[in-house]
Write a protein that binds this DNA or RNA. Structure first.
Length: 1068
RNA sequence: GGGCCCGUAGCUCAGCCCGGUAGAGCGCCCGGCUGAUAACCGGGUGGUCGGGGGUUCAAAUCCCCCCGGGCCCA
């Protein structure tokens, strides 16, 4: 019993239904598990590490879908290529954004409420539940779009095992002497009561602040002042010194009875702002001359902290802090409240004094201002006091962009706080060396990464929050000894008990015994930065170090794939953790993908209202269409979302479906059994187009594999699309149509089937990673039906290898030439109004390129078929030379300037010998002669050449030369053409009557004598084409005909009637 | 302010690494096909390759400067 492919043409194409069917098929047959099992039997490991998406919402961003789809296509490719693929997905679950969502839900306004009203335990459980719900929803969506990853077993950063793995790295850092505690000036949110990482400082508001010019009295000089400008009066109590630029010009200016010092570049502006017109420049001096100039702080006596700071009160050189574009060129430095200030202070040995507490209120050290909120009462009181003391030169208001907390919109402040650091700056050389070993796609990502490493700073790992990995540092209450715990086991060895959960607050209860003094140790309350979490994923997701075997076996990570925002994010944090923990880069290859932008090219964001919900997307566009659309985009470039683009992609799917439906229809009708008829069996019956398609197929396989190996999936996607749409549908199928329409079982037909079957099957395998649903459908409906041993799923099959014996590059090049020749011939036909249906006597190819001539000679028959000509004549330009009459018109703008007063001679020449000149230019590009003593050289640019082909020729020019169609239709062609017109109309009526492709009919036909004569002359042809058992020429259709219609052919009336009939086929 | 990326037809984008006659799809106009058909095919239309300068016989492509957009920093 022959096994034959199923027939897709019997069903209506519905991509949505197809995908539902496949989804069910996968579920019912446990396909993912089987794929995984097969993969795990391989010895060649492929460790892929999923960058964990942040589980803070239920609906995934279309960009997140893109991210996973890119990963999926590579994973599927590697699995089909025989690798043992590690594909555990992950979720990033800790951190402030999630805490804030829970705060909102619980109505928390200030952090203290969490401890006092809600309880940390309940807060943590709420966070966990929130994350669990999000993860579930996200997983559903990833599965929905066909991502084959280990969804039953994701790594989750909040689990105890993961936390324990995280501790291990902190301990490593400590052991290597990299962990330290220190002060760092960071943005701080007084509502959330925590620091914000630099990247979190992303939102700004237009806020108004005081803009004051303050006079700092210069020591030892009567009524002489440094003029400083500030918009943050609350930082003045913490002033330590004043910064100036050594290379800027400064001036001493007399204003009233005072002398002020400020930058020359700012003088005019400041005076105008202060409304001072009467001033006198006393002296001009270089910034460096100010160095060391001492001053007195105007509020010194009110602020106790000044006692410690006053010894630094002088001008210091700090070009990085001074600009000529704002202020006075003298910058007040409060090292505890400014980033640059702190850096300069460090060099001077000045302390980072911060006078604001966690909640934004001035501290004890601020003396008089203690208890005042920084941007309100403190500002007002300080300005008032300065005014009373005559220390304000001018007071105004400024509206400027001021950073606010991206969660609660509270204005931020800069503040020195105690934090835990990892001294990665000490590892810089190692980091650079290791980064250099990584393979980057595209190459510029490496450059960007290296640039970033140059600006490396120590890593602040601590956060003063709750939902995170607890910092595993315990401090002895008695002796102050600090110890870092690297595991739960160590916790127990030091006298602690494993808490029910490693999060706060349970971990906070764990007390240890001090190894130094035997005293009680308590944990510092901080948690870790969330970048820490994902950064350790490369080993923590494998359970290292509790389970060492897995990491030892899989390391290093073979590839990772994320967006270009992660160059500074995850790619960096992974490398950092790898170097801290293991002294090497934890991953080998990186593929960077772009950003999903909206239709206008702006960032797509919920708050901008230009956001496309994943659910909406998937409900409107089939999954594979979305996937292929995402994947054809140059992977590292940004992608503009586009409904229209998706719609176009849908059209390609229709073409693809039609190709498969076409193939399956005839294969199943003719009971083609691919196991019985193999390619080798029909080799000698193949036509050039068969050999050509097979060669193209090898090229496809080769190019596809190269692209995939090199992490350029978009090139593979485009190649797949081009092959099926351009090569198979638009060319091959067109050429072989007539070969499959024949009734009998011919070897030629079988050659087509074997060729098409191989091409489509191979294509399906290659396409499987990209459009897993559709490929699976074809696999089940066509290939698995036809082949006994076919794997149960296309995703369990092997990637095809190119087979050189079917490669024929010359043929591919020939066909390339032939396609453009045919195109030109069709254009020539069209110009002459000769429908393709009507055969023509002759097509003449006058080709100027020898490779085209050779190609056309070799593929002459194919050209004849494609352009429907009885004869094709091939030759060089001379072939048409004699037949064409040229007209030549001068281009005065080109000739004029060149020949000037000789122009009339040239014009005369053109009139005299137009044909000769034109032919020379067309054929050789140039015409040279000496005419009446003038040396003339003419090219195409000098003249406009038009061709006057004779009446009976239609000529078309293309890059390869000229193609001419002989318009003279002989009796034979005329009859054949009319017969084909009749056939076409009968076909339309068959369709109208709803007949099946295989049904037979009786045809009645009555009309113009010439039409009737045509049909009679071509009776075998007509009958075969329309599957007639009988053709009654000259008879009106009977009243019981299934359909009857009147047509017009070449302006003459024609009546046709049809009635379904039993076979057999027409015999004369 | 800095680093990197992008800027090509009305629209979406290939081509740029490795210089050699500007391409595709969509749109629009015209035509064809009708046994893959609520499809499909062909032709036409349309471009200062963001702008300027340089290297070169030759630049969309290599180099420099500028402009606009994106990402990441400051």
């Amino acid at each position: 019993m022959a096994r034959v492919p199923g027939d897709l043409s019997t069903e209506r194409y519905d991509q949505f239904a197809l995908e539902e069917w496949v989804k069910r098929f996968w579920e019912d047959n446990d396909v993912y598990r089987k794929v995984k099992e097969k993969s795990s039997r391989s010895q060649r490991k492929m460790y892929f590490l999923d960058g964990p998406p942040y589980a803070s919402a239920k609906s995934i961003h279309p960009g997140t879908a893109w991210n996973k789809v890119v990963k999926d296509v590579l994973l599927r490719y590697y699995r089909m290529s025989g690798f043992n693929v590690w594909d555990r997905p992950g979720y990033d679950t800790h951190g402030l954004p999630i805490e804030v969502k829970i705060e909102q839900k619980l109505g928390v306004k200030v952090k203290k409420e969490i401890q006092e009203r809600i309880g940390i335990d309940r807060f943590i459980m709420e966070c966990k539940r929130f994350v669990d719900e999000n993860m579930e929803a996200m997983t559903r969506q990833f599965r929905e779009i066909g991502v084959f990853m280990d969804w039953d077993n994701p790594y989750i950063t909040y689990t105890d095992e993961y936390i324990e793995s995280g501790w291990w790295l902190v301990k490593r850092a400590w052991e290597r002497g990299l962990l330290y505690e220190g002060l760092r000036v960071l943005h701080w949110c007084p509502r959330c009561e925590t620091t914000l990482a630099d990247y979190e400082v992303s939102e700004y508001r237009e806020l108004s602040d005081p803009s004051i010019y303050v006079k700092f009295p210069v020591k030892g000089r009567e009524r002489e002042y440094l003029l400083v400008w500030t918009t943050t009066p609350w930082t003045l109590p913490a002033n330590a010194f004043v910064m100036a630029h050594p290379e800027m010009k400064y001036v001493r200016v007399r204003v009233g009875g005072d002398v002020l010092i400020l930058a020359k570049a700012r003088l005019e502006h400041v005076m105008r702002e202060a409304g001072v017109t009467d001033y006198e420049v006393l002296e001009e001096l270089e910034g460096r001359e100010l160095e060391g100039l001492e001053y007195t702080h105007p509020l010194e006596d009110l602020v106790p902290a000044q006692r410690e700071l006053s010894r630094f009160h002088r001008v210091v050189m700090a070009p990085e802090a001074v600009t000529p574009y704002e202020g006075t060129g003298l910058v007040h430095a409060a090292p505890g409240h400014g980033t640059v200030d702190a850096e300069v202070a460090e060099k001077l040995g000045a302390p980072l004094v911060s006078l604001v507490d966690d909640r934004g209120f001035m501290t004890e050290g601020a003396g008089k201002y203690r208890g005042m909120y920084f941007r309100r009462e403190a500002n007002e009181a300080i300005v008032r006091d300065l005014e009373e003391r005559g220390a304000v030169f001018h007071k105004g208001v400024i509206v400027h962009r001021y950073p606010v907390c991206w969660r609660c919109k509270t204005p931020l402040l800069l503040r020195a706080t105690r934090q835990w650091f990892i001294a990665v700056t000490k590892l810089k050389d190692e980091l650079v060396r290791e980064a250099d070993k990584i393979e980057w796609r595209p190459g510029w990502a490496k450059e960007r990464f290296m640039n970033m490493l140059r600006e490396l700073r120590d890593w602040v790992i601590s956060r003063q929050r709750f939902w995170g990995i607890p910092l595993p540092v315990w401090v002895c209450r008695s002796c102050g000894y600090k110890h870092v715990v690297g595991s739960v086991k160590e916790l127990e060895e030091m006298g602690g008990r494993r808490p029910e959960n490693l999060h706060r607050p349970w971990i906070d209860e764990v007390r240890l015994r001090c190894p130094k003094c035997g005293g009680v140790m308590e944990r510092v309350p901080d948690v870790l930065d969330v970048w820490f979490d994902s950064g350790v994923a490369f080993y923590a997701s494998l359970g290292y170090p509790m389970n060492r075997e897995l990491w030892e076996r899989l390391k290093p990570v073979d590839f990772i794939v994320e967006g270009h925002d992660q160059i500074r994010g995850w790619f960096f944090s992974l490398l950092r953790s790898g170097v801290i923990g293991f002294g090497e880069a934890p991953y080998r290859r990186v593929l960077v993908h772009g950003f999903m932008l909206d239709e206008q090219g702006r960032e797509m964001h919920k708050s901008l209202g230009n956001y496309v919900e994943f659910e909406e997307l998937i409900s409107k566009v089939p999954r594979d269409v979305v996937r292929l659309w995402l994947l054809q985009n140059t992977v590292w470039e940004d992608l503009r979302f586009s409904w229209k683009g998706l719609d176009l992609m849908k059209r390609d799917f229709t073409v693809m479906w039609n190709v498969f439906a076409f193939a399956s229809l005839y294969m199943s009708l003719d009971r083609f059994d691919p196991e019985e008829t193999r390619l080798e069996d029909v080799r000698e019956h193949m036509e050039v187009e068969d050999r050509w398609l097979l060669s193209r197929l090898q090229a496809l396989v080769e190019g596809y594999r190269r692209a995939m190996e090199d992490l350029r999936p978009h090139e593979a996607a485009r190649a797949l699309r081009d092959f099926i749409v351009e090569d198979v549908s638009r060319w091959y199928v067109r050429l072989v149509r007539r070969r499959v329409w024949v009734e009998e079982d011919t070897p030629s037909k079988r050659a087509v089937y074997a060729t098409l079957y191989t091409a489509l099957k191979t294509w399906t395998l290659l396409a499987a990673p990209f459009i897993p649903f559709t490929a699976e459908y074809f696999w089940q409906k066509l290939f698995r039906k036809a082949e006994k041993e076919a794997p149960e799923s296309v995703h369990l099959a092997e990637m095809p290898e190119p087979d050189e014996k079917w490669r024929d590059e010359r043929l591919e090049r020939d066909m390339e030439a032939v396609r453009s020749i045919v195109e030109a011939a069709l254009a020539a036909r069209q110009k002459a109004g000769l429908k393709l249906r009507r055969p023509v006597r002759k097509v003449i190819l006058a080709l100027r390129r020898s490779d085209y001539v050779e190609a056309a000679e070799r593929l002459k028959d194919l050209i004849a078929r494609a352009v429907n000509a009885k004869e094709v004549e091939v030759g060089g330009p001379e072939l048409l030379g004699g037949a064409l009459e040229y007209r030549v018109e001068p281009d005065y703008s080109a000739l004029g300037p060149r020949y000037k007063r000789d122009l009339p001679v040239v014009l005369e020449l053109l009139k005299e010998r137009p044909g000769e000149i034109a032919r020379a230019i067309v054929e050789r590009g140039v015409y040279k002669t000496v005419y009446k003593g003038v040396e003339v050289e003419l090219t195409r640019d000098d003249v406009r050449i038009s061709m006057e082909p004779p009446e009976w020729l239609s000529v078309e020019e293309f890059e390869g030369g000229l193609v001419a169609v002989d318009k003279r239709i002989g009796r034979e062609e005329l009859l054949e053409g009319i017969a084909r017109e009749v056939v076409r109309r009968v076909q339309a009526m068959r369709k109208e009557a709803g007949y099946h492709v295989e049904d037979y009919v009786v045809v009645w036909l009555r009309g113009d004598p010439e039409v009737e004569e045509s049909v009679k002359a071509m009776i075998d042809y007509v009958a075969r084409e329309v599957r007639a058992v009988e053709v009654r020429v000259g008879e009106e259709p009977p009243s019981d005909a299934d359909v009857a219609r009147e047509w017009e052919v070449d302006g003459e009336k024609l009546v046709i009637g049809l009635k379904r009939a039993e076979g057999p086929a027409f015999k004369r």
